[in-house]
Amino acid sequence: MNIKCGELNFKIGYNSDWEIPKNVAKFVCKNEGAHFGGSPEINYNIEFKDMIKQDNRQIISTKQEIIVGCEDNLETRYLFIKGAPYPYAKYTEVDESNISIEVVNNFKDMFDIDTMFWSLFALERHMIKRDAVVLHCAYTVYKDHAILFSGPSGIGKSTQASLWEKHRNSQILNGDKSLLLKQGGEWCADGWPVCGSSEICVNKRTKLGSIVFLNQGKENTVVKLSKSNAVKKIISQLTVNYWNLDFVDKAFTLAEDIANDINVYELTCTPDVSAVEALEGILKEGEPWIL
């Protein structure tokens, strides 16, 4: 199965009777011609095992749901479900282009869920090498530009995106995440195969218009963030491998580049159309693309 996500072309080899998420099909390329962009840069090979053995790579990070080992800049990841006594999968970089994935048979039936399936591939690690980052946000399109509503879980991203869809005829392309990357020197939002509970997943690239960080409140106020505050907000909602200092440095560099090119706002809002009106008024003042 050939996949293109952002600018990364990769191939996944697995048992054909394995049930995987339906959204995977939106990122599949049926041939290796112009649509795929040539031969795959990474080959993932998935095998099913009764148990997973630990290798000899030095452990560099231990968290509740992931243990990371490393040797010669090649990673091993042991992936856990919270509370489980053993990992459900192991990700092993054999070299720069070949990755082995072992999945425990007892968990095999759980991978029709987006987050479970894509957790196997460490995509954020490979995206950062291609100057792309994953932002936790509701990805909407209005007047051919992306407006990204971002903030911690439960802050109201889906609510604000739905209000714009209802009252301004915008389109929601992903309710949970977007890939951010540059095309022709301009920042764009792109489709991402993980969409959370929204179940909205459209594989489409759009020029990035604005990023809006949300707060809940009794009144609607909009503030354009300074560059330094914008970088802090962006970093807080990026998928970052904090055990990898090169990854962290690159993420900050890309966040600074985004903040230099794109206006970032903070919207304190109510869950109704007045929030749309407040934000739209500010965007009309500062965003030429919205006029």
Rank of each mutant, 00 (worst) to 15 (best):
N215Q: 11
L208M: 07
L214F: 08
N215P: 04
L214S: 08
E199P: 00
G185M: 06
Q216T: 00
K207E: 10
S198L: 10
Q183E: 13
G191L: 01
V212A: 08
S198V: 10
Q216A: 01
L180M: 11
K207P: 10
N215K: 14
S210Y: 07
W192Y: 15
L180D: 06
C188S: 13
T206Y: 05
E199D: 14
K207A: 11
D190F: 10
G191K: 00
K207N: 12
G184M: 03
V212R: 02
W187M: 07
V202G: 04
T206S: 13
G209T: 01
I211F: 00
K204W: 06
W192T: 02
Q183F: 08
E186H: 13
Q183G: 09
V202R: 08
N203S: 12
Q183P: 00
V194M: 12
D190Q: 13
W187G: 02
S210E: 11
F213H: 01
G209A: 05
N215H: 11
L214P: 03
C201Y: 05
I211W: 01
S210W: 05
S210T: 15
G209R: 02
V194R: 08
G185Q: 10
E186K: 15
V194N: 07
K207S: 12
D190H: 13
V202C: 10
W192L: 03
P193R: 10
L181Y: 10
W192M: 02
G184C: 06
E199S: 13
N215L: 13
I211L: 04
L208N: 03
G196H: 07
G191R: 01
G184P: 04
K207L: 14
L180K: 05
T206V: 15
E186L: 12
V194A: 08
W187S: 01
K182Q: 15
V212N: 02
E186C: 11
C195F: 05
E186R: 14
G185Y: 05
G184A: 04
C195S: 14
C195L: 04
V202T: 14
T206P: 09
N215I: 05
N215V: 06
I200E: 05
